[in-house]
């Protein structure tokens, strides 16, 4: 059980997807002007990441990994090169299903997430999470922990950043620096701060 918590904390703070692996930056910069929308997007990322990483883990272990098809008598087949196409299709499908389910059973949440949910299909934090899971040979339970932790870490990063950015609007920056340039520099400082957490999990 402690290793479950270990992986969650590590993925959330030490190896934060947004600030250490620099994944999902486009969405991170585009959808962080208000804390409210950042919160919605953060929730969507947690949900999608926690669902897709374990599903992709199962798909990889059952179908794609070298020798994974042994259960069908096809032990010598190695389909791991198909992981990009397969993962992106699994992600697109799960996002679509989640979208439909939320629309039917949780219309309030669905409205809060708005257009951000479908956009997550092309968010590199989501695909990156699945690819990192393969690279690290996580088991099913570990991948569940990794999905949850990395999603929560990304959400944490964007919510902090959106809060900072709401304050930044009031400050008087030099012409070309105003807006995006400043956003980058602030993210840099935030990333520096997260580097300080690197000793959190041994």
């Amino acid at each position: 059980m402690s290793s479950f918590l270990d992986i969650v904390l590590r993925a959330m703070f030490v190896e934060n997807l947004a600030l250490v692996f620099l994944l999902g930056m486009c969405t991170y910069l585009a959808v962080s002007r208000k804390v409210e929308t950042a919160l919605g997007l953060g929730l969507a990322v947690i949900a999608v990441q926690t669902i897709t990483v374990p599903i992709n883990n199962l798909v990889y272990q059952m179908l794609l990994a070298p020798g994974a098809m042994a259960w069908a008598g096809l032990g010598e087949i190695d389909l791991s090169f198909m992981k990009f196409v397969t993962f992106i299709c699994v992600i697109a499908a799960s996002v679509q299903i989640l979208d439909l389910l939320l629309e039917r059973y949780a219309p309030v949440l669905h409205r809060a997430l708005g257009i951000y949910l479908p956009l997550l299909t092309v968010n590199c934090a989501i695909l990156g999470g699945s690819l990192l899971m393969v690279q690290r040979h996580y088991s099913f339970v570990e991948s569940l922990a990794f999905g949850l932790g990395s999603g929560a870490g990304w959400a944490l990063a964007i919510i902090i950043f959106a809060a900072l950015r709401e304050r930044l609007r009031l400050c008087d920056a030099p012409g070309g620096m105003d807006g995006l340039g400043l956003a980058f520099v602030v993210t840099g400082f935030l990333a520096l701060g997260f580097m300080g957490l690197s000793g959190l999990v041994s």
């Binding site: 600030l19 692996f21 030099p174 070309g176 995006l180 340039g181 980058f184 520099v185 400082f189 580097m195």
Partner: peptide
């Protein structure tokens, strides 16, 4: 480390936008 990339691209954007 990662933060330096943010600083450098931030300053590049500053330069390009000032030119604009």
């Amino acid at each position: 480390y990662a933060p330096s990339a943010f600083f450098l691209i931030g300053f590049l954007i500053w330069g390009v936008r000032s030119m604009h």
